[in-house]
Design a protein around this nucleic acid. Structure first.
Length: 423
RNA sequence: GGAGAGGUGGCUGAGUGGUCGAAAGCAACGCUUUGCUAAAGCGUCAUACCUCAAAAGGGUAUCGGGGGUUCGAAUCCCCCCCUCUCCGCCA
């Protein structure tokens, strides 16, 4: 959520920054400003009436104490009360209208973001490793999975529908090994605190991180839309400290969580539907940071580096791209995507998206810290996958496939997997 | 799921219709005193919003959340959320 004062004071700046995104957010500014003017006008009038009522009610109390008649005053205040009730309603409506407008507005992109329209405009930031070469035509993970019985899409579809996975045997063990490998790396080497949060999320927390109100159709809802399945651990973990005032010394907070992620992927039907690449439920280890505004950009670099470390230790070739303004997510001010090479796809797969949300989410969830001068300010929230499992699984089995159809397990993962190959 | 108890400022805790944004204590911060420490004394010590060019100042709201009764609600009534205890069920 953007600061209404910023919109009020620098509407041109806000419009200009928003216009670099896709969508029509920048066209909403005038409507918001009009709403804000009306809201403040109502509020000022309401406050004046409240002040009158308060003052006169005290007078009534004083008169009664002295046994003086007060009927006339009481009638007058009753009249004011009726006006207040009416005005109260109007003001509440104006408040809500303004909040709804603000909740629909995406974050301002960072001033130094590359300007662009879509994924084609995302600059490559760095590349690690090189594409592996094979003396044979590398198979894709679907073929490898079928041959080695790593997962069973048909039976998963039978119980849950298309777009769900059921890992089996060595595949299930590999999935579990990857989760544990990531958690151990971030907790032991990168000093993140592990949390294991609930996956069922209430509306206000979904609003807090920005999934609601705009993206409800992408979420799995339960209990008639009262609660939702978490689409990412970002939601429960970032909301952990919602409505709190943290001490500056506690920051930055580094949190890591493994959770399954549930996504309806509405509108994605038919796209990347083969295999494990786009599914309704997948495992992910997520990194979340709460930082001061002074350090958040630096923390984003570190967080991205922490996620990259997963791929480095597994020996997987990847590249980091920076999202241009047109391709960035709703709440993000700056995003790096990490894309791992998948030989069987002959393509890079997004396994992590590392973003600084600045105070966008903190404002929605009222998450603050007390700075060294004792002032309460909104924290900056960051998150990034560290990393998303099924695609990491895909890259790993496709990269380490051998001519005989077996799969080698990289050394760093062997203690977790329990053996050196799958055959 | 059933029955009961409760939710007040950073914490403890008083307050059952008026002058209460809220006593008192603790913690914190500042000043004074002091050889240091300790202690004592004095003071400060919630948040959001509105008004104002800004500051100063003024104002409104907030005692879990929402609604109601009333001239007036922390206090009375209703709904919801949360916590605790007991019962039932259960991995």
């Amino acid at each position: 959520m953007l600061d209404i004062r910023l919109i009020r004071e620098k509407p041109d700046y806000v419009r200009e920054r928003l216009a670099t995104r896709n969508g029509d957010a920048h066209l909403k500014i005038d409507e918001i400003l009009a709403c804000d003017r009306r809201r403040r006008e109502l509020e000022t009038r309401l406050q004046q009436l409240n002040a009158d009522r308060k003052r006169l009610s005290k007078e009534i109390g004083a008169k009664r104490a002295k046994k003086e008649p007060s009927e006339e005053l009481e009638a007058q205040v009753r009249g004011i009360g009726e006006e207040i009730t009416k005005l109260n309603e109007e003001t509440a409506q104006a408040d809500e209208a303004q909040r709804n407008l603000l909740l629909q507005l995406p974050n301002l992109p960072y001033d130094q973001n590359p300007i662009g329209v879509d994924a084609k405009d995302n600059p490559e930031v760095r590349v690690w490793g090189t594409k592996p070469e094979y003396a044979f035509t590398p198979a894709d993970h679907v073929a490898l999975g079928a041959k080695l019985h790593l997962f069973d899409p048909e039976r998963a579809a039978k119980i849950s529908g298309s777009g769900f996975i059921c890992f089996t045997g060595p595949g299930a063990r590999l999935e579990r090994a990857l989760i544990n490998f990531c958690l151990d790396l971030h907790t032991r080497q990168h000093d993140y605190l592990e949390v294991s949060p609930p996956f069922v999320i209430r509306r206000d927390s979904m609003v807090g991180t920005g999934q609601l109100p705009k993206f409800e159709e992408d979420m799995y809802g339960l209990e008639n839309g009262e609660v939702f399945l978490a689409p990412t651990a970002e939601v429960p973990v970032t909301n952990l400290h919602r409505e709190e005032i943290l001490a500056e010394a506690e920051l930055p907070k580094r949190l890591v969580a493994y959770t399954p992620c549930f996504r309806r992927e509405a509108g994605s039907a038919g796209r990347e539907t083969r295999g494990l690449i786009r599914v309704h439920q997948f495992d992910k280890v997520e990194l979340v940071k709460l930082a001061t505004p002074e350090t958040s950009w630096d923390e984003l670099e570190k967080l991205t580096g922490n996620a990259e470390k997963v791929l480095q230790l597994l020996g997987l070739h990847y590249r980091v791209i920076e999202l241009c303004t047109g391709d960035m997510g709703f709440g993000s001010a700056r995003t790096y995507d990490i894309e791992v090479w998948a030989p069987g796809q002959n393509a890079y797969l997004e396994v992590s998206s590392c973003s600084n949300y600045t105070d966008f989410q903190a404002r929605r969830m009222n998450l603050k810290f007390k700075d060294s001068e004792g002032k309460n300010r909104f924290v900056h929230t960051l998150n990034g996958s560290g990393t998303a499992m099924p695609r990491l699984f895909v890259a790993l089995v496709e990269t380490y496939q051998q001519a005989d159809g077996s799969i080698k397990i990289p050394e760093a993962l062997q203690p977790y997997f329990g053996s050196a190959e799958i055959r």
